[in-house]
Write a protein that binds this DNA or RNA. Structure first.
Lengths: 231, 231
DNA sequence: TGACTATGACTGACTAGTCAGTCATGTATC
DNA sequence: GATACATGACTGACTAGTCAGTCATAGTCA
């Protein structure tokens, strides 16, 4: 009984992945074929879900809100994801994977170890700290204990790789005589710690006391590499 | 409409803080007077709430579960706290304040700056890392964005004080020639970062890769103070 | 090319279940 | 006996997930 959606508009954001996630008011752009449209919708749902989960956390996020933000009916979400939980898990994968790929693909085997690490830090600064992706990291820290599969994935794909990569760089630095402290290779976490703190700080305390992450990371590298660089 | 907490007692935990928090099966020990009993109940509720909030986060925690764990009826919770939200906020205060007090009251003005910082780190290791209180820190990171009052409180009472204290120590270290890098005073976060990372690591990744926090902090201090100490 | 049919993406009202907060009814204390 | 405290069944608001029905589009045929 009752039923008669009429359903005129069908937003769909024409690719663009609509970061801003314009809710309702977007104009009809009936993308070519069905498959494309579906992919666009899926992307819109992912973006919307990301925003909502970051803003409210897993439990407090309503699928109705995600649907509204994505400009889609609630049922549509279930055409793309099994349920709320698996949507959250997939979401993390979908967003994390390309970032890792980009950060990993970097190593331009040029210059000193310090140059390499600085390039890496620069990218991290640009790609993560203070961005939506930084918030995602905080979200993983927050929900990790309740989503072992997410924590596992994150450890496997990001943390263990990152630690291994940093360890390799540190060992190279020690071999080349750029880094004096040989013990550092045992705890690459020390190298990464200020960057992580910066991510969390921006999320939580930026409005109390803004933090110049770039400068802080430079000071930290000075500490490790022992000398002042450039100016 | 509706709302009228009744909000009678405000016991104030008469200290005691009953860490053990025996769940249901506690044999009634009709402690002398009403005030004492009430204080015990309040403490039991605080402990139970702490456990539940840490395990599930704010939104997913059920007051029924807190009540059951505390060995109390749900209504009793409302004799002590206005609602779930203010319970969470008070909880953070109740648990954090004594920890800060204990960590702050330390400074035995003896020995080198490194000794001071090492003593501090040792206490932090014992009191926070890998304990329930460490989980609370993770919880604050998790819920902070949704509870500005909690984030504010935490910044004011813990972060800003901690940063200021560390800065003072660093400056003293620089004056005394123990610390070479003068820039460090601008970012006390660098000094603290590995400790925070240890807290988070224990919560999330300990079962994937255990971390010897104590050793890591030692290596980090070696990095800052430049030389190896003892053995 | 135009008309007609089949497909399945999409919708949103609905169901079943959950849980914060209430309050009438005890019960212990003074 | 009066008061303060404690209880837990109850209410009502809210939401994850469902599914019967719709309709734009792809496919087929003349």
């Amino acid at each position: 009984m009752t039923r008669k959606p009429t359903q005129t508009a069908l937003p769909s954001a024409t690719r663009a992945s609509a970061k801003g996630a314009a809710p309702a008011g977007n104009v009809e752009v009936p993308a070519s074929n069905r498959a494309t449209r579906a992919a666009e919708r899926r992307a819109a749902i992912v973006d919307a879900a990301m925003e909502e989960f970051i803003a409210r956390g897993f439990a407090a996020t309503r699928l109705d809100d995600i649907a509204k933000r994505a400009g889609v009916a609630k049922g549509t979400i279930y055409l793309h994801f099994r349920d709320k939980e698996s949507m959250f898990e997939e979401l993390v994968r979908i967003v994390i994977v390309p970032v890792v790929a980009r950060l990993t693909a970097l190593p331009p085997p040029a210059g000193s170890v310090r140059d390499l690490i600085e390039a890496f830090a620069g990218n991290f600064l640009k790609e993560v700290i203070g961005t939506r992706r930084g918030d995602l990291v905080r979200l993983i820290v927050a929900e990790g204990p309740r989503f072992p599969s997410v924590a596992d994935f994150y450890y496997r794909e990001v943390v263990s790789r990152g630690i291994a990569a940093m360890r390799a760089l540190i060992e190279l630095g020690i071999t080349r005589g750029e880094i004096r402290d040989k013990e550092l290779a045992r705890y690459p976490q020390i190298l990464v710690a200020p960057a992580m703190i910066a991510v969390i700080w921006q999320s939580l305390f930026a409005r109390h006391a803004p933090l110049d992450a770039q400068d802080m990371l430079r000071v930290h590298l000075d500490l490790i590499f022992g000398e002042r660089r450039t100016t």
